[in-house]
Computed example of a mutant assay.
Amino acid sequence: MSLKESELKYYKKELKSMKREVVQRYNNQTVENNEDSHGVDNHMGDSGTAQYEQEKNLSLKENDAELLQEINDSLEKIDEGTYGICIDTGEDISKERLNAIPYAKRTIQAQKSYDKGRNNRGDKSPNLHSDPAETIKQLNSEQDAFKS
């Protein structure tokens, strides 16, 4: 099953829409973080809450950076003509899976095997930067691209 041109256009549109949402969410988080950082902590509980919020926001930004990378990879695959093909098995990814997760790069069975192996090794996602600053740089560059 190879995807028709109209289907590829549909998935490309979906992926670009998702990309805009991720960048917009990042922009909103950045604005909220800047507004929250101007307060003064006078109580230990407030300091703990502020630290928790910072860690949560960093985690959300890292998740967004990983999702953004997945989306960008899928957009590249559409341009290369390899979209919808499992990176592990070379099999076609079902349309049902692509409709649910347009950035899927594995069939369901291949993803299960990958996740099982990754969990057994305790691996982190290969798309996340080990340095959170790199993750944030990636989102900032995407944000700048949408402003242009």
Rank of each mutant, 00 (worst) to 15 (best):
S2I: 05
L3G: 03
L3P: 02
L3W: 03
L3T: 02
K4S: 08
E5V: 10
S6Q: 06
S6L: 10
E7A: 06
E7Y: 07
L8M: 01
K9A: 05
K9T: 03
Y10M: 07
Y11G: 02
E14N: 01
K16L: 07
S17F: 01
S17I: 04
K19M: 00
R20D: 00
R25M: 01
N27W: 01
N27H: 06
N28D: 04
N28W: 02
N28P: 02
Q29T: 00
Q29H: 03
T30G: 01
V31G: 04
V31M: 09
E32S: 09
N34H: 10
E35C: 07
S37V: 10
S37A: 12
S37E: 09
H38N: 11
D41N: 12
M44P: 08
M44F: 15
D46S: 15
S47Q: 11
S47D: 13
G48N: 14
T49L: 12
T49F: 06
Q51W: 12
Y52T: 11
Y52S: 06
E53Q: 15
E53M: 13
Q54W: 13
K56S: 11
K56V: 10
K56N: 07
N57G: 09
L58Q: 09
L58A: 08
S59P: 14
K61I: 01
K61Y: 01
K61N: 04
K61W: 04
E62C: 05
A65Y: 05
L67S: 00
L67E: 02
Q69K: 08
Q69D: 08
Q69M: 06
I71M: 07
S74A: 05
L75Y: 05
K77T: 00
I78G: 10
D79F: 01
G81C: 13
I85Y: 05
I87T: 07
I87P: 01
D88S: 12
T89C: 14
G90E: 02
G90Y: 08
E91Y: 09
S94K: 01
S94F: 02
E96V: 10
A100N: 13
A100T: 15
P102C: 07
A104V: 04
R106S: 10
Q111E: 13
Y114S: 11
D115W: 09
N119E: 15
N120K: 15
N120R: 11
N120D: 13
R121K: 10
K124D: 10
N127D: 05
L128M: 10
L128H: 09
H129A: 15
D131W: 11
P132V: 04
A133W: 15
A133R: 15
Q138R: 11
Q138L: 13
N140P: 13
N140V: 08
E142K: 03
E142F: 04
E142N: 06
Q143C: 12
A145D: 09
F146Q: 09
F146S: 10
F146D: 09
K147Q: 01
